[in-house]
């Protein structure tokens, strides 16, 4: 039982974080809050990739003479670029939120929907 817990703990935490992020995106009307929820979701996926890439007793994939066991470098590469792309897309989302605020005077999604329906 303890073995199962240790070998799956990271995956379960990832799923938990993913669900918290998803819940924030679905249940909160505030657009900035939604973006932060998306960020949590995104980070949970990063954590999943890095957890898969870990080799027990391995070390960071920087080649040195005395070490022969390294963690998998491929997930690191994928996630490294994904993080920076993530901040670029987040900034784009925030820019859209700012423009929505200027146009509607609010950043609550349901109020914006009501205004659109009233027109």
């Amino acid at each position: 039982m303890w073995d199962l817990f240790l070998s799956h703990y990271n995956y379960w935490i990832v799923i938990f974080l993913m669900m918290i992020g998803f819940y924030i995106v679905m249940s909160r009307h505030n657009l900035v809050k939604k973006l932060i929820g998306l960020n949590i979701f995104q980070t949970s996926v990063f954590l999943f990739y890095i957890s898969v890439g870990k080799v027990s007793d391995g070390t960071a994939p920087i080649i040195t003479q005395d070490i022969s066991r390294y963690s998998n470098p491929l997930p690191h590469v994928l996630i490294l670029t994904a993080i920076v792309v993530g901040v670029a897309t987040t900034s784009l989302g925030l820019a859209l939120v700012v423009r929505l605020k200027e146009a509607y005077g609010t950043i609550e999604e349901d109020e914006i929907n009501d205004m659109d329906a009233a027109d």
Binding site: T43, F46, I50, G53, Y70, S71, P75, L80, G86
Partner: peptide, 19 residues
């Protein structure tokens, strides 16, 4: 910090600077 623990030093660096 979790990334450092999981041997992904480059990723941890990026996450700390960016995130």
């Amino acid at each position: 910090t979790v990334f450092v623990l999981l041997d992904a030093v480059d990723v941890a660096f990026t996450e700390a600077a960016v995130g």
